[in-house]
Nucleic acid binder design. Structure first.
Lengths: 243, 243
DNA sequence: AGACTACAAAAGCATATACATGTACGTATA
DNA sequence: TATACGTACATGTATATGCTTTTGTAGTCT
C-alpha cells in the first residue's frame, strides 16, 4: 500500500522524504530497527534498487546506519565534524588511555565587561556565567579553559560540578550548536596562565578562541589555552565523504 | 581495455579513483568534456549503471558537473571549506588590502629522508619536490612555508616561478584535494626559522602541518610556520549547512 | 560446555534493459 | 529568413535479476 508523498520528484526522493518524516515525527522510535529493503519493497510497491538508493543516500548523509547482514538503524545525533570535536579534550585524553582530572578554579555569574558583552552580541546588558577550569592529563596540566556562557540558553550552568562532568559534555547535551567560530593563535604564557599550567612564563601556548551559536544567539565564548609542548590540535577531513 | 586500479575495492570506487587520477595528473585538461557514460562503458568494460554511480558520486562530492543532454565536465576548483581555506595566505593578505610579496629560498628535487618517505606512503623510494618560501605582508615576514610535493601528481612543480604564482594557487589548480590532514601546534622558533621570519629565536610560532591527498595518493606535505604575534588562523563553520 | 557447521537474513555490488528528459544540430517548410 | 520538426546523443530514473559478503542463529558433533 503506497503512502509516498505526492510531489513532483523522483521516486527515490519520495522514499527519502517518507523515511525522514517517519524519523522526524518520532513515529519510528530512536533505537528501532528499520524495515529491511525487501520489507520496504512490499510495503511501498517500489523496486529494491530504488529503496536501496534512498537508504544509501540517507546513510551517507548521516541519518542512518546500516550493517550488512544485520539491518538499518536510525543514527544517533551526529558526532560533530572534525572542526568541532577538537574541543572535547576529555574524550581525547581518555581515548589515549590516559587519566583525566580537572580542577574548577572559578564558577560564577558576572556582569560582562563591555568588550565581552559585544562578543555576545547582546542587545542590552545581561549577566553571564563564567568558569575557569584546568584539565590534567596524567596529573600534568595541559589545558586552561575559560568559558563565558549565555544564561538564557543554559540556565543552570553554575549549579554543575565540573570536576565530574566536563563543561564540554554538559554544554553539548544542553544545547545544539548550529555554528562555530574558531580563532587559533600562538602566544607566550602570561604569569597567571603559566602558574596554572605549571610552565614558565613566556612559554609557547596554543590559544583557541571559540564562539558557538544556537540559532542566532551566541551560546558560549571560550578561551582555551594549551601548553604548546604538550598538545597539538589535529583534524582530518574528506570533502568527498560528506558532501 | 581495462586500466582500472587493482585494489580490493568495489568497481565503482575503482572507476572513481581512475577518474580522479586522470583529473589529478592533468591527463584530462581542465575545460575538457569527459567521455560520455557509454564511452566509459566501451573504454573500461564496465556496465553503464556502474559508471553512472561513480560519476554521480563524484558530482555530488563536487568534483564534476553534469548537464543532462550535454555532458560531464571537470568542476572548477572549489571554494574550500572553512578548514581548508585557512591556508591561502596570499588571498588573506590581499583581502585585508595589504601588499603581498614572497621570496623563494629553495626549489629543488630531492630524495626524501626515511621519515618523509613514510609520510608520503611511498611503496618504493622516489624523489619529491621541495620548496621553501617566505611570505611577506607589507614587507613584514609572516609565514615560512616548506612544502614537499609528489612529482607523480604535479610533474612541473620545480619549473614554476613562485615569487609570482602562490604555491597554494598552483597546487589547487593542478590537482583536486580529496582529503586533508592538519596538525596545529605552538612552538618556539628555532634559529633558522627565526632568521627567515625576522624574529628572535624562541619566539612563539604557530606551526601548521598539513598533508593533502588526491584519491589514495599523498599529494603534498607542508609545514607552515606563522609568526605568533603577527598571525592567527580563523574559521567559522555551520554544521547544518553542509552535512 | 564448547566448537564447528549449515543455513537464513540483510545489505552490498554489478549488470541488462527500458524509458524519460534535456540539448544540439541539421533539414524541411512556411 | 525564421520556425518547426526529426534525429542523435547525453544524462536521469526505474526495474528485474543474480550474485557476494557479512552477520546472526540454530543444530550438531565432540
Amino acid at each position: 500500500m503506497n503512502t509516498l508523498p505526492d510531489t513532483a520528484s523522483p521516486l527515490y526522493e519520495k522514499v527519502k522524504d517518507y523515511i525522514l518524516t517517519n524519523i522526524g515525527t518520532g513515529r519510528w522510535s530512536k533505537d528501532r530497527k528499520l524495515p529491511s529493503e525487501n520489507e520496504f519493497v512490499a510495503a511501498l510497491g517500489v523496486s529494491r534498487m530504488t529503496i536501496h538508493r534512498a537508504l544509501r543516500e540517507l546513510t551517507s548523509a548521516g541519518f542512518l546506519i546500516r550493517l550488512q547482514g544485520v539491518g538499518t538503524f536510525i543514527a544517533p545525533p551526529r558526532p560533530q565534524s572534525a572542526l568541532i570535536e577538537i574541543n572535547n579534550i576529555v574524550a581525547e585524553i581518555l581515548a589515549r588511555g590516559n587519566k583525566h582530572r580537572s580542577e574548577v578554579l572559578v564558577l560564577e555569574k558576572i556582569m560582562p565587561a563591555k568588550e565581552l558583552a559585544l562578543s555576545f552580541e547582546f542587545a542590552r546588558r545581561s549577566s553571564v556565567y563564567h568558569s575557569v577550569v584546568v584539565n590534567f592529563e596524567n596529573d600534568l596540566p595541559v589545558q586552561l579553559e575559560e568559558r563565558f556562557v549565555n544564561p538564557s540558553l543554559i540556565p543552570d550552568y553554575d549549579k554543575q560540578d565540573f570536576s565530574k562532568t566536563a563543561t564540554y559534555d554538559y554544554l553539548m547535551q544542553k544545547t545544539p550548536v548550529t555554528e562555530v567560530e574558531h580563532i587559533i593563535s600562538a602566544i607566550p604564557a602570561d604569569a597567571e596562565t603559566a602558574r596554572h599550567l605549571g610552565i614558565d612564563a613566556g612559554s609557547c601556548c596554543l590559544l583557541l578562541n571559540r564562539r558557538t551559536w544556537t540559532g542566532a544567539i551566541v551560546a558560549t565564548i571560550s578561551k582555551l589555552t594549551y601548553v604548546g609542548s604538550r598538545y597539538s590540535l589535529g583534524s582530518r577531513y574528506s570533502p568527498s565523504k560528506s558532501g
